[in-house]
Write a protein that binds this DNA or RNA. Structure first.
Lengths: 211, 211
DNA sequence: CCCAAAATCCCCCAAATATGGGATTTCCCT
DNA sequence: AGGGAAATCCCATATTTGGGGGATTTTGGG
């Protein structure tokens, strides 16, 4: 018997899912709540499920924060995200939080069931588009320099790396044997090319592999 | 029509796969070779397939090396690894090389077909055990950082995220409905706790998962 | 109840940064 | 040979940041 709980704020979707799971002979849905808070208020050690189907956009705490809390309290629990979000930030935040599955909404119930069984059996399931983003993460992370041409010149790139290292303009000047005014000019050009207005933005783009 | 090629050293498996794909009305297998070298010798721009099903353990060049060569020459090509290997190194080497799918051997042909269609349509497919390893990579990678407990309080963490987003002290104050002086105090505390002296260092620590 | 941490805010000064303008020289490609 | 980009440097002003000091109130755990 697979025990599954649901955290989904849309009541129509929530009830439909619960009815579907309860119609399976070997799956039982014990709880279906509209928020992480409401769910946590009812959850006890003796009723921890095998799998949780979790939305991300919820009233109050987000599903991702919910994953963190639930995984910290019950590390063996399997949580499947079910959401409309395609954006990489949500995907990777979910994975980093400990999600074992990531489904995009509008999947047929049969496939959701398949994902639940897969996760219950120790595997993971990602919707194909999600899987593609995850795989691209590995590939593009490896080939950022080759794939996406940086608009910065060699000296500008050098200055960016120095900024990332936390060096001040004066430090960069000393290190590169150029004047502080030259560093300032390079930084002006960098900001212009990247369409940013602060070194924080430059550092983030660099560390995220965007330049 | 989906064009697929096969690189598999076991002749029995290779022929069986080719026969299966050719039995599909809308899939055509143009080439089935026993090694990357043999395959590359016949491959021309005009017969580049949509998808390649690639073993990893091959005579001569490994499938992973083959992925690198093929992706560098034909970046849009989709390559699905099909192998017995469960070990993480092979998995991540394949992903970093640019594979779009990773199947474990002994999958039913029907599911292999499903994976081929998924990849052809722009998604990715991983066998559930592989997907689990990939997701664990993200979670456990995060846990290395999480095991090193962040010394920052909730508000301090909020300020760090705002810094990473490129916000100025004034912006942070406005967004959090606190005064600029409060933001300054938080930042002083953050620098003290993290033993740094610039926001650049804070941002780098944050993006590298060190806090 | 007490204590420590968190959260809040204030003041001051020096240094750094952001942004605006300008300039010359060198290098490389057409 | 010419043009454009890169690399170099200068000046000015306004704003932000870093670091020093201080303070009070709230919160939560022992």
């Amino acid at each position: 018997m697979i025990f599954i709980d649901i955290i989904e704020d849309d009541p129509v979707v929530r009830e439909a899912l619960k009815d579907f799971f309860d119609s399976r002979e070997d799956i039982h849905c014990s709880a279906a709540k509209e928020s992480v808070e409401a769910y946590l208020a009812t959850l006890k050690v003796e009723n921890v499920p095998d799998v949780i189907l979790m939305d991300i956009g919820l009233p109050g705490m987000s599903g991702i924060s919910g994953v963190k809390i639930l995984k910290s309290r019950y590390p063996e629990i399997n949580i499947i995200m079910q959401t409309v979000y395609h954006d990489s930030q949500k995907i990777f935040q979910s994975l980093c939080a400990g999600a074992s599955g990531y489904l995009l909404k509008n999947m047929p119930f049969k496939e959701i069931e398949n994902a639940v069984r897969t996760v219950y059996e120790g595997g993971s399931f990602m919707s194909p588009q999600i899987a593609r983003k995850v795989m691209d993460f590995f590939y593009k992370g490896k080939n950022v320099a080759a794939s996406k041409q940086s608009p910065l010149s060699g000296k500008e790139t050098e200055v960016v790396h120095a900024l990332v290292d936390g060096l001040s303009y004066k430090d960069i000047a000393d290190k590169s044997f150029i004047s502080v005014e030259t560093v300032r000019s390079h930084i002006k050009n960098i900001y212009k090319k990247l369409h940013v207005h602060s070194k924080a933005e430059v550092i983030r783009k660099s560390l995220n592999g965007e330049i």
